[in-house]
Design a protein around this nucleic acid. Sequence first.
DNA 1: CTTGGGACTTAGCACTGTGACC
DNA 2: GGTCACAGTGCTAAGTCCCAAG
Length: 939
Amino acid sequence: MSEMEDFNVPVDGGEAISNGMTNGISNGTSEHREHKEHKHRHKDKERDKDRHRDKDRHKSSHKDKDRHSSSHKSSHKDKEQGDKDRHKDKERSDKDKHRERSDRDKHRDKDKERSDKDKHRDKDKDRHRDKDKERSDKDKSRDKDKDRHRDDKRHSSSSGEKKDRDKDRDKDRRSSSHKSSHRDKDKDRHRDRDKDKERNRDKDREREKAKLETKVEPEPVFQPMEEEMIVKEEPVESEEEDKLVISEPVKEETLEEEEEEEEVPVFNRMHVKQEEEEDEEDDKPLAVRRKVKEPKEKKRKKMKDEDDDYGDFKPEKKRIKKEKKEKKPKVVKFTSAHKAEPISPSKKAKKEEDPVWKWWEETKRDDGLKWHFLEHKGPMMAENYKRLPSNVKFYYNGETMELSDLAEEAAGFYARMIEHDYTTKPVFNSNFLSDWRKLMTPKEKEKLTDLKKCDFRRIHAFYVQQNEDRKNRSKEERKALKETNEGLIAEYGWCNIDGHKQRIGNFKIEPPGLFRGRGEHPKQGMIKKRIMPEDVIINCSKDSAIPKPPPGHRWKEVRADNTVTWLACWTENIQGQTKYVMLNAASKLKGEKDWQKYETARRLHKVVDRIREQYKLDFKSKEMRIRQRAVALYFIDKLALRAGNEKDEDQADTVGCCSLRVEHLQLYEQKNGKEYVVIFDFLGKDSIRYYNEVAVEKRVFKNLQLFKENKEPGNDLFDRLNTQILNKHLNELMDGLTAKVFRTYNASRTLQEQLELLTNTDDPIIAKVLQYNRANRAVALLCNHQRAAPKTFDKSMATLQKKIDDKRDLVEEAERECKQLKKAAKSGGSQKEKIAHEKKKKALDRLREQLEKLELSATDKEENKTIALGTSKLNYLDPRISVAWCKRYDVPIEKVYNKTQRSKFQWAIDMATADYNFMGEPMNISRNNDDYGEEEEEE
DNA sequence: CTTGGGACTTAGCACTGTGACC
DNA sequence: GGTCACAGTGCTAAGTCCCAAG
């Protein structure tokens, strides 16, 4: 807890602000992360009010309780937190009034919205039916919706027509779906808020770190950038800017940093101009061009069609696909050698004595094929349903009711979950009921119409009991079970790929059950149907032992497509997505890809300074789309935001960078003594809240104001940008560059820098590990990797604290005794006394060490409360950085990677030396060995 | 050029086995 | 031997990105 001081550090990033654009801002990875609580919603006119309300919501509610009880336990952090809370409380009281009112409104709105949405759904269906005809009409209205932005701008002054359109728009899309869902999310996410609170502490801490980091960071070295980048840039500054609404502030800014007041009107003025201009041309919001998305039903229909042709071997489809792909030399050589592989004594021997296939030492083939020989046993199908014992009854409306097999199975799915939060959600329940009824016999269907009248308790109890029994199994039973499982893994868990035995990642077909979407998923509670062999496509070599379908069944298809890595796939019925059986992370196929990913990130390092220069220049481009692109890229780089693809409406409402909407950011010219503060508050992947207060560059800030201008909540912030556009641009800047690479790059770079910063050579290993975890944590924070605080956190923390206290007492006692003995020994004590003293001294040292260890683990634990380190470690951190660090500081690799992780990163453990530098020269993975000849191997 | 969907990575939560502790 | 906590693992949802079809 040495970092308490950090907590008073004002929100980060003041540095970045002042230096405007031309001089390379300190950059990226550092000043970010400030999460807190909250959620949103808005009503057009009430936007402001809503904002308050939202804030309130975030701040108040639940968690506060938890927070206070749990986290205030100890430390200064808590004090700090307390201050914050108090602060919030104050704000809150003012706003509560607003909230109450608007909540009521919300309810009203919600209802309305719902029905609107339904209407829309129906429309969607119709659309499918008469696609073409209907399109023109209905879609138009929809398009209108999407055109919103442009229209708003164009006709902003003109009136009635616009209002009508607005209404339509509002009905559409975000209205019900996201508003209401947000609200619900709000409720559900108490836990998150709790987390958020905690996170704040870390954040504060990290912020400080980040600052250090920033300092450490090397100044970008400018290298002339080829490409259009520069070209476009030059002229912007002067006359052209005058024409452009947008640009003037930029100009102004360069002249006079001080006069903020002026700018607002200027902006407005300009805006008018801008509208005219945009009206004209290319600089149109994307939404305008976007066509209506075809709802999922269509997909599903397609799926159905496909389903009709079951067969044993279906090369045709594949062939078609392959022909398309033919650029890739489709030389599938099924040499007998491959097939003979398992038999070949030499190879077999090799496999046995050396189970690790050091593929990274082989030369990579660049034929684009994923394998040349592939053999496996097919996926393991889910167990058949066993009916409940006859004494386990289901009750409907107080009476027992016998259910048919399918209906009973589904009842079981639900019964198992009745203790879960999910079953308190109306969406979940209604989805379940409607899917459930589809499985019922007409008779059942007729009778069973109300979920509330269903009594699942006996069934639930039955499954609970079953779990109990499972836990209480005898040793023998356990052992037998374990053996069966191992047998299954031995049978299904491995494949032979190009002569090597490799572990399969998920060889089990997903069993049926209820769909548990994350966040406010509109499809939660729907029934995932049982997958039959007839649904499964097998992929393997033609000349391999083709997996046998279970007796009485056949596969949907067997194909031999060696341009892909999957062994089997099927289509899931909830969202119509394909699910794959693939190799496990330690396999060559995955490992190679992983390695490649980090090499791409390292290549980015070589050009990142130029890219940063460029997007900073682009902040003042005269083209709106360029500015938006630049600002988005700035966020992606600086805050490690995800790209943010568009999503369908039948998914939870979450966003990433490109899909941010205006309500997701709040702009403050001044906040907490800092200028140009942007508050991000949105739900990202997995409906995990992203909350961050960041001080940004003035130009970014001004641009954001501009982007938000004349838009309503629900409108896209970047209306001229999407991920394709962004990635296309990125790819032009560097081969293979996409938005995601920035995340990898900044994460890995942060780790390396933090390790350099935090590692203290003289510390014992245990302290170093803590330092490593802190560096790791900095990354997790950057990437916003959260987890729910463990349920038992408080308790176990208290236990630990008690241990510490006890230990401390022991230490003190030992110290006292030691002193006494010392005295005795000194003042002409006997030999015996001297020995006793020595002994005590040693014991004392041991105790101290133990105490230290305990304290360290307490710190670590506290800091990790709501941060998940695993995700970044597994997906974003170049393992060679960690390996090198371990080697450099003599930390056993086991302290950093567990067994699974070690096998996943075997390639890195094998190849990285102590002086590996992520920011060093990238390797050419396909040419392999030669490139890292310098690096020696260590076991 | 847009859209849909295929393929693959990234993600958090749930479950489980194990080992520390009593 | 029983209990508990937690690390490790499994599971599968939810992203990204790319390419082909329309």
